[in-house]
Amino acid sequence: MIDRFLTEKIKAKLFKGKAIILTGARQIGKTTLLKSFFGSDEEVLWLNGDEVDVQELFSTISATRLKAIFGQKKIIVIDEAQRIKDIGLRLKLITDSIPEVQLIATGSSAFELANHINEPLTGRKWEYKMFPISFSEMVQHHGLLEEKRLIPHRLVYGYYPDVIVNQGNEVELLKQLSDSYLYKDILAWEQIQKPDKLLKLLQALAFQVGSQVSFNELGQLCGLDSKTVEKYIVLLEQTYVIFRLSSFSRNLRNELKNSKKIYFYDNGIRNAVIANFNQIENRADVGALWENFVVSERIKFLNYSDKWVNYWYWRTKEQKEIDWVEEANGQLTAFEFKWSALAKAKLPQLFLKTYPNSQFKVISKENIDEFLL
């Protein structure tokens, strides 16, 4: 079994008087993680928010009835809690009325769960975001050399747990993931009337990984207005399919100040969206695959290691660009991502002149451990 970094963090917060909220995409191992240290423990009550009777149970629940339902259970796990109406108020009721119980709620879509828990659970919760398995978790599992050898495989198939443990069935599993789970929470939202347009938008985003995106241009490609494009992108972010990277600007007039790039949390899902599982030796988009991989893995690393940094990309109107700019403790470091260590890269002189104390590093597959471990 592949150990997940969040396991020990969550264990350390048990019975500390607060609810534990675990969010992340469907099928990335949230329930598996919890069962790894609870198992079939008789003191644990598992409830699934996808089930109608569980949703109905919480619709008009009282503290007295909750105590009767929980009985002698010490740990209450509510899976897919975003499916339960007014979940924040229900969780608050449990934490306030039954403080001896450890409450854990998981969710696969932030647009319901986060919006409905933040105010009711202020000061009453620990929150953790979970991602597909990370490069660093796999290094811990079977060593750095082995995982670096598998990077070409990861660029194509990604890091979803089922995909990793079922070698030879990657394409079938990714098709199932993208068809059955990827859009489930979004399409359940009543205002999504055109799922075909949503898929077109995702495909357009997949083809533009690592490039600036324009809502107007995306709308023209997909047959949607720019406001609907932005709304769909927000929903895709909140269901942990994609994320945005903002541009860095402080001093120059010609720095792009409000532009965005969009990346996928998982390379395998990105490739499933465009139905391209060719190996990297036969692909023209290896640069985009590498950039998406490195950026998403850095996001995982920063989250799991509790490093407090700001990050952006940088570009000017004259198309001078840096893939990743990071600021930690007042120090700026610029990074360029190159699949081959032989590819030449240098820091744009304009950036160096404007931010003279900044550092510069090139990240390739040969030195990826310096960036992700």
Rank of each mutant, 00 (worst) to 15 (best):
I274C: 13
K300A: 05
N367V: 09
P195Y: 04
D285N: 04
A345V: 06
L350C: 08
K317L: 07
G219Q: 01
A345Q: 03
W189E: 14
A12K: 14
A188P: 05
Q82C: 07
Q238T: 01
A204N: 04
E56P: 03
Q212W: 04
F5A: 15
D50L: 03
I274H: 07
N276T: 12
K257V: 02
D179V: 14
N267F: 00
L372T: 04
L347I: 13
V309F: 07
I76K: 06
S214P: 05
D50F: 07
A288Y: 09
V101Y: 06
F111R: 03
S134W: 01
K338V: 04
N166C: 02
W290T: 03
I192C: 00
K231S: 10
A25W: 04
L221A: 11
N303P: 01
F351I: 06
A63W: 02
E127P: 15
D323N: 09
I98D: 06
N254L: 05
Q82I: 09
K11N: 02
E326D: 09
L235V: 12
N303V: 02
I280V: 07
I368N: 04
I233F: 00
R124E: 01
F277E: 09
G223A: 04
G29S: 08
V156L: 12
L57W: 01
N271M: 08
A204M: 04
G24T: 12
V101I: 14
F38D: 01
D41P: 08
L145N: 14
I98A: 14
A206L: 00
L93V: 02
E170S: 13
I28W: 03
V156E: 06
A343D: 15
I368K: 03
D79A: 01
E100F: 02
E112W: 12
E119P: 13
N169F: 15
E217G: 03
N271C: 00
G219C: 01
S62H: 07
L205Q: 06
T7A: 09
G158V: 01
S358Y: 08
K9L: 00
G330K: 09
E51K: 13
L218I: 13
T32W: 15
R83G: 01
V165D: 12
T7D: 03
G223W: 00
R83A: 12
S180D: 12
Y159G: 14
Q212K: 14
R26P: 08
I117G: 05
R149G: 00
L14K: 10
E281D: 12
Y240F: 15
Y232R: 08
K257F: 11
R124Y: 05
T228C: 09
N310D: 11
I104K: 08
Q82L: 10
S134I: 12
L113G: 07
E217S: 15
V295I: 14
N276W: 01
F351R: 15
G158D: 04
R90C: 02
D185C: 07
G330W: 12
F37T: 00
Q349K: 08
I10G: 09
L201H: 04
E56W: 01
E43K: 08
I242S: 11
I61M: 10
K365T: 10
K231G: 04
K30T: 11
L245A: 03
Q331V: 11
G71S: 09
L199E: 08
S259T: 11
E237T: 05
S247M: 11
Q140P: 09
T228Q: 11
L202T: 13
Q220K: 15
Y183A: 07
K125A: 13
K361H: 09
D50Q: 06
N303S: 14
R83Q: 14
A284D: 07
